[in-house]
């Protein structure tokens, strides 16, 4: 396998004469976990379907390991909706291996190993259609892992979990992805998942790639305001006229490395927490923000101007 596992070249996809995906160039390096991140309807799943060979672009080509046109079974793909055939979880996990012509003993070994990795070893003999949403997503991932394909596509693998299950599976997934030698392309609209799992991130919005590169590089220097906002940054113009992006969670009350003035609108109570809601005063006008107040801190009255600080920030653009 070459250094580039997947390449989009002048790819365009249209539906009812409307362009829904336009990717002039994008490369996914071999052996990385690349997260396609963006809002729902951005074109992320279409990109996965193009890679899997389930769709063909209206223009351009998608190369998978240098070849155009992925054959049936060419990549492993976990769909967002965990779909199973009738039968046991084990039979479902083994089907792809059977279709690839693996002998029964090896199928059993691989199914057992991937079920163990995904924490569903105890569910293998269960009827696949009786799994809960979370169990089904784990089985969905296990089926994909069992194939041990050089390229693995995961579409919103954490969809359908409750909050506790989500946190636990996110940890499991992060651990699993570290052990996988192959190339992984993972789609998510969730920032936490993207930031936790990505080696590289591709920010997609309205069918276009807004930014692509190693996660850290993109986070440290988002190319433009829209991308920064997609990444959840608070974007504002500082006193020197530079566009700053403050990452989510980086604002706190009090002076600091970067200090701003905030006009308090109100203090919001969320359970035991208090949050300060107001507008940062900038040269270009007010910028609405919300930040947590430390326990026991004074609650400023509405209208008062207080100091807040950012511990981290990124410069947007070149």
């Amino acid at each position: 396998m070459s250094d580039v596992a997947i390449a989009f070249e002048h790819v365009r996809v249209a539906r009812e004469r409307r362009t829904i995906l336009d990717v002039p160039r994008l490369e996914v390096p071999t052996g990385t976990t690349t997260v396609l991140f963006g809002p729902n309807g951005a074109g992320k799943t279409t990109m996965l379907r193009l890679i899997a060979g389930l769709e063909k672009p209206d223009a351009g080509v998608v190369r998978v390991d240098g070849r155009i046109g992925t054959p049936a079974g060419g990549v492993a793909y976990a769909f967002q909706e965990a779909v199973f055939l009738r039968g046991s979880v084990r039979a479902n996990l083994a089907l792809g291996l059977e279709l690839r012509g693996l002998p029964p003993a090896e199928r059993t070994d691989r199914v057992d190993a991937s079920a163990r990795d995904c924490g569903i070893a105890h569910l293998l003999e269960r009827d696949a259609h009786t799994l809960s949403a979370g169990e089904a997503q784990r089985a969905n991932l296990a089926r994909t892992l069992a194939l041990r394909a050089p390229i693995m596509l995961l579409d919103e693998p954490l969809a359908g979990f409750d909050r506790v299950g989500h946190a636990r599976f996110l940890e499991d997934l992060a651990r699993l992805l570290r052990t996988i030698a192959g190339t992984v392309v993972l789609v998510t609209h969730d920032r936490e998942e993207a930031f936790r799992l990505a080696d590289r991130i591709v920010v997609v919005a309205a069918g276009r790639v807004r930014a692509a590169g190693p996660l850290r590089a993109v986070l440290e220097r988002p190319p433009d305001r829209e991308t920064a906002e997609l990444l959840g940054y608070t974007v504002l113009l500082d006193d020197d006229g530079a566009l700053l992006g403050i990452p989510p969670g980086a604002l706190r009350p009090g002076p600091g490395a970067r200090t701003f003035r905030l006009v308090v609108e109100r203090v919001l109570t969320v359970g035991l927490e208090a949050r300060l809601v107001g507008d940062i005063v900038t040269r270009a006008g007010p910028v609405p923000v919300e930040l947590p107040l430390p326990a026991g801190a004074d609650r400023p009255p509405p209208g008062e101007t207080v100091q807040i600080a950012a511990d981290a920030w990124a410069t947007i653009g070149d």
């Binding site: 389930l54 049936a72 990549v75 769909f79 909706e81 279709l99």
Partner: peptide, 26 residues
């Protein structure tokens, strides 16, 4: 049947006839 089932069978490596056979079974 689930809408994604034929796509799933394709990505698992089932060719056209095998796919139809599996779908008929479902």
């Amino acid at each position: 049947l689930p809408e994604r089932l034929p796509d799933l069978l394709w990505t698992l490596g089932a060719g056209r006839w095998r796919r139809l056979w599996l779908l008929a079974g479902e």
